[in-house]
Design a protein around this nucleic acid. Structure first.
Lengths: 237, 237
DNA sequence: TGGTGTGAACAACTTCACAGCG
DNA sequence: CGCTGTGAAGTTGTTCACACCA
């Protein structure tokens, strides 16, 4: 069944993940069938958008009826590559790093930490979270290879992100979730996603200051003309 | 100096915030002048993109020279609405919530927590982080108004996000940074940004599974044709 | 000369509108 | 009759290429 594989927008993948979460909820409360309009409403998306998103990957629904929840869930799981568990490492014992280690939902979703690294000698050897012994970055290459780690969650201190990324790229890691506000420079076969929420705060601040045009004083700033909010925007754009 | 104010892409605001961070770094190490090519390289953006982004808001550079770092910083600060400090509240004492409270960079950037709320009676009244007394959600309306809180960081447990959002919308809050994976349903004058990094992990997983087309077995999945990586994509799209 | 500013060309993404089918 | 699936139309966003100016 070879599709002619038209280009899949990046934003589609993001939305697929959002649909997936909503469907998991439906599954739990026993809903069997759902329409594109319903999913779309609950995920702040245009119904046609949802159908188009799915259409990139095949046909999933029944005309006049809707989508079978368990079946669509399985298909999405397969598309997103979530059938296999993913082995991750956390690098950098910051506050956020420690919090992420304790995030129960990650395990439920098939994301498991196999190692925790930190470069500060004070932390190496201590035990954190659910019984992880903190490893030195010196053994990165060995441990990454031995434990088959594919994804690194980078929660190092400001300014050490690039250095750490280089180290783990050298160790063979090709996927990074980066929480610092530095932009990483990486080879083109390495994937990076940025999760620095202070950037999102800035966009909120911008929206707020546009919304209440003149606060107190001179503000010669024209209220700039911003297009309507789209879903992808709320997610970092 | 009334601009004709053409539409500003949402993605532009995001990038402005990223440029801002890079310029702060330049400022600290004393660089006086910078070119669009340099900023663009360090932020993984096309130089024309950077210039276009700025052009929505005026003219900032000197032809043949580049941009004056302190001056551009000031202008960006003004555009993003960062001149005034922003009062925030944190809602939900989860692990991530506690970590964010301790995030030093927020204060440096003008984002200050004025209150911490939690609905669990076990937490109310305890002291967390830098001396915050945890407040009950019952007093939300009063406290929000009294302290002039504009932004709520929502770190409640899965499933309580909508409920909490409704409560604080009623209390007058118009900007939310939401860490749970639920999509909120809010009036059109309320701004929401989502910071659920598990969605980003899913997009990483997708990319990984596309990159190594056939892992072990049957996988009838065609390697879908994904367009090149763009900056906004790495930020959640 | 060298780097900005920008209209115009291009590319990506979203929405419409309706055909098609259960 | 209702809801999916999808080409075509429309909209938004990015890149090019070059005029312009210190």
């Amino acid at each position: 069944m070879q599709f002619k594989s038209p280009k899949v927008p990046q934003a589609t993948i993001l939305r697929l993940s959002i649909y997936y979460r909503y469907l998991q909820g439906l599954m739990i409360n026993g809903t069997a069938v759902v329409s594109s309009v319903d999913i779309a409403q609950q995920t702040n998306v245009n119904p046609a958008q949802l159908r188009k998103d799915l259409s990139y990957f095949g046909k999933f629904g029944v005309r006049g009826v809707g989508y079978d929840v368990p079946q669509l869930l399985r298909r999405l799981k397969s598309i997103l590559g979530l059938e296999r568990e993913r082995k991750m490492a956390l690098v950098g014992l910051t506050h956020i790093g420690r919090a992420i280690l304790q995030h129960e939902q990650l395990g439920q979703k098939g994301y498991n930490f196999e190692a925790v690294f930190d470069c500060s000698p004070a932390n190496v050897g201590t035990i954190v979270g659910d019984g992880y012994t903190v490893l030195s970055c010196d053994v990165a290459k060995k441990v990454i290879a031995e434990r088959g780690i594919e994804v690194v969650v980078l929660t190092v201190d400001q300014g050490h992100a690039q250095e750490a990324a280089d180290l783990f790229i050298d160790a063979g890691v090709r996927a990074f979730l980066c929480f610092s506000s530095t932009c990483l420079s990486v080879p083109s076969d390495v994937f990076v996603r940025y999760a620095d929420f202070t950037i999102l705060l800035d966009t909120l601040t911008f929206s707020l200051s546009q919304a209440q045009p003149i606060a107190e004083a001179d503000r010669s700033s024209t209220p700039f003309n911003i297009p309507y909010q789209r879903v992808s925007a709320a997610w970092g754009v």
